[in-house]
Write a protein that binds this DNA or RNA. Structure first.
Lengths: 193, 193
DNA sequence: ATAGAGGATTGATCTATATCAATTCTATTT
DNA sequence: AAATAGAATTGATATAGATCAATCCTCTAT
């Protein structure tokens, strides 16, 4: 149940077994079926979720009804609308399952209390947030400075698992291009070799 | 010297005066003249800097020699190549002054020691990193989901000070468009009213 | 095994933005 | 004040990627 979580935490900080026991008490498990929502536009994001198993996506829907993938989360990733979760404001994003998933969920109150009680967790999240900033920054630069093809190649190289596991139309959305354009880019690349 | 820093920190966490005194010891002041580098592509980012006064920019230069603005920092902002600073790897970014600046600089060792000694600072940076993630996420979405004009209008509305204080060609770069396109967008907007 | 639905591909066109080049405007240096 | 360099604007043209539409695949449910 907590295997993935603790193995992930132990990559960043060391926990005593007492701390591990305490941490467990803050989480409630939840299963999510494919296509089921974890968060819908208009709700407050009440939980920060850790993915023990499965695959979720986090996205907005614009005025015209088009979906824009912000990111994906599978085994070993945290997912939430950070802003809504922390501020209590209504979210403008959606989270749902691409594949059946098993989650560990924590409320804001639990999250804050856990960090007070277990200082290593404060550190763990600071590190996580740092890494998150770095990867968002990279993605931002690539969206500003590179062509669609360059972005796709960079993604497929740095994150081949993502390209394999996630449907192409969602990857296109993640890259900010249409599925047609992505299809042509892929054709073009294989053609080059 | 430390006015802006402590007023910024006090917006997020409470410090005792002993803590304030201790924190001061970790920083060294530095003045930067317009166009002077704080960090150059190829160096390791040795300092995290807080801007007491002035205006800096953080950017990459691509293979073709074009600059891409990642962000700007003025009074009350922190600036560094977070990745290089934390990992010790060589940076691929540049930081220089758009306007003469006064900085407070801290090394990685100082940074980590300060957070151990003053737990409120661990909290302060966790909050800062959270906010940073939120704003990067918003920018990312806007770059994926919106047109150049929409992005400019959103920026000018949410951050009018930025549009006033920073030269147009740098704003264009920040938005991921050419200066010509930005000029036309601005013309088009004023024309609409 | 078959039907249906969603996903991927391909083709034909359109459009936002880039590129290149010239001109004007503005600020800084001498 | 004149000279110069860097910004910003404007025009003409090119191009990456979008849009629309048709067809083909490939799962999944029955």
């Amino acid at each position: 149940m907590f295997d993935v979580l603790f193995s992930h935490i132990s990559e960043k900080v060391v926990l005593t077994s007492t701390e591990e026991l305490l941490i467990k008490t803050y989480f409630s498990p939840k299963k999510l079926r494919k296509k089921q929502y974890l968060l819908q536009d208009g709700e407050v994001c009440k939980y920060l979720a850790f993915v023990e198993k499965g695959l979720l996506r986090y996205y907005t829907v614009d005025d015209k009804g088009y979906e824009h993938m912000i990111h994906f989360a599978w085994e070993g990733w945290w997912i939430a609308d950070t802003y809504s979760f922390l501020s209590g404001d209504v979210s403008t994003y959606n989270i749902d399952a691409i594949e059946d998933a098993e989650l560990l969920m924590i409320t804001l109150q639990g999250f804050e209390e856990m960090m007070e009680k277990v200082p290593s967790m404060e550190r763990y999240f600071r590190i996580l947030f740092q890494n998150n900033i770095i990867s968002k920054e990279r993605r931002l630069i690539s969206s500003i400075a590179h062509s669609a093809e360059e972005r796709y190649v960079a993604l497929a190289t740095s994150n081949p698992k993502l390209v394999q596991r996630i449907p192409q139309n969602l990857i296109a959305s993640y890259l900010g291009i249409t599925p047609e354009t992505l299809s042509r880019i892929r054709k073009n690349i294989t053609h080059k070799r």
